[in-house]
Computed example of a mutant assay.
Amino acid sequence: MRDDTTQDLTGLNTLRLVSHAAHYFRLDNEQQLPQVTQRRHAAGQDIYVLGGGSNLVLREHISKPVVHNQLKGIRLVEETDDVFIIEAAGGENWHDFVATCIGNGWYGLENLALIPGTVGACPVQNIGAYGVEVMDRIESVHAWDIEQGRSRLFSVADCAFSYRDSLFKKPAGQGYLITAVRFRLPKQWTPVTTYPDLKNDPALAQSPTAQQIFDAVCRIRQAKLPDPAQIGNAGSFFKNPIVSAGKQSQLKSDYPALVSYQQADGSYKLAAGWMIEQCGWKGKSLGPVGMHHRQALVLVNHGGATAADVLALADAVKASTQEKFGVTLEREPVLFD
C-alpha cells in the first residue's frame, strides 16, 4: 500500500472539486486489507473509501484517512443451466466491466452502460438506469470490515437495497470497504426496453440484442449528459422523489405537464429534473457552479469550485422546488467532510 502524507484529490473526483487529503492510501491487492484496519486504529477515526470519485462531494480539506480502492479482476465464478455468476473486483471501472460482460455473452447489465464510477460503488448507490436497478442483478457483496479487520459476505437481503440507497450508505454500513461484487446474469436473457427513450428508439424496434441496447444507452446518455472529462459533474445530483398518489394527483392538477411514473406500490416517482427546470434553474449558475443547460438534474463545475459552492447551489435549488411544488429533493452524491 502506497502511503502519501498528502494527496491532491482534485483530479480524483468527477466534479473536479478542489480537495486535498491529509492521509491517502492506495489499495492495490487484498493482502493489504489488514493494513487498512491498522491505519484505522492508528488514526482513531473513520476511513473514507474512494473509488472512481463519481458520486462524491469532497470538502476542500479532508483530515480523515482516504483509502483509494484499486482492486482489479473479473472472473466467471460459476455457470449453471440457468445463470452465469460473475465476480468483479471493487476497483474495476463500471462501464468497462459492463462492456466486458457483453463481449463474453453475459447479458443483463447493458441498460447500466456508461454510468461513471467503479464496481465497488454500484451497490452503495444501488445504481439504476433505463428500467434496470443493479440490485436485481447482484448475487452477493464481498467487503472488508475495516473496524473488525475481517471479511464479510452480504446477501442481497443483507444489503437492504432501496431506490438509490443501501446499507452501505447508512451509518451502520459505512465501515465496510467493498472488495468485490458477484452478479447473477440469466442465460435466458430478455431485453428491457420499457423506458421511453429505449422504447422509442428505432434501432431497438424488433428483437434487439444486448449489444444494441448497450449501444443505444451509450448514445442516449452521451446526447443528454455532459462528459465528466469535458466538464466536472457527478451525473444526476438529486434523486427523483417518491410521493403518494394523493400528492401526485394534486401536483398533476396544478401542473398538467408534470412528469411522473407510477410505482408498483401505487406511489409515484417524480422527475426531479423537470421540477428543477420549471423553477428556472436549467442552465443557470451560482458562482462557479450551475445546473447544466441540457439536463437540469446535473450540477456542473465551471472551474475552481469547492464543496461549499456545490452545497450552496444545491440548497438554493432545493428551496425553489420545495416552495413551488412542496417536494423536498434529496442529494444523490455522498459528502466527504
Rank of each mutant, 00 (worst) to 15 (best):
Q322M: 09
P202T: 04
G304E: 07
R39T: 10
D265A: 14
H142E: 15
G44N: 08
K64R: 13
P333V: 02
C122E: 09
I242G: 09
D28E: 13
S19A: 15
D46G: 14
T100A: 15
E110C: 04
D158Y: 00
V134M: 09
T118E: 01
F238M: 06
V36L: 03
Q322T: 11
A43Y: 00
G246L: 09
H41T: 08
T306V: 04
K64F: 08
T190Q: 15
L177C: 10
V77H: 03
A257Y: 07
G91H: 00
S54W: 00
T328Q: 11
N93V: 03
A264Q: 14
V141T: 07
V18L: 10
V192Y: 07
A210V: 10
K72E: 14
Y255V: 11
T5F: 07
F25Q: 11
Q212M: 04
G108A: 05
M291V: 14
D145E: 12
G149T: 04
G287H: 01
P288H: 00
R39Q: 10
N13P: 02
E110W: 00
G120D: 06
K318Q: 14
V217R: 01
N111F: 10
G287L: 01
D82S: 15
N240I: 13
W106L: 12
P186Y: 05
K64C: 12
K324W: 02
Y195W: 13
P202V: 04
I127P: 05
T193S: 14
A305Q: 02
H68Q: 08
P191A: 00
V36N: 01
W189T: 01
A314P: 04
L114G: 06
F214N: 01
L15K: 01
P196C: 09
V298T: 12
A143S: 06
L112H: 04
F336L: 04
A234S: 15
M291L: 15
C159T: 05
K239D: 05
G53V: 03
G44Y: 06
M1E: 08
Y176H: 11
K247M: 09
Q211S: 12
A312V: 08
Q188T: 11
T328K: 05
D3R: 10
E147S: 12
R59F: 12
I178M: 05
H61Y: 11
H20W: 08
Y163L: 05
G105F: 04
D81V: 09
F154K: 01
F238D: 01
K284R: 12
S155M: 04
L251F: 03
Q148Y: 10
V298G: 02
N13H: 03
Q322N: 11
P34A: 02
I86S: 03
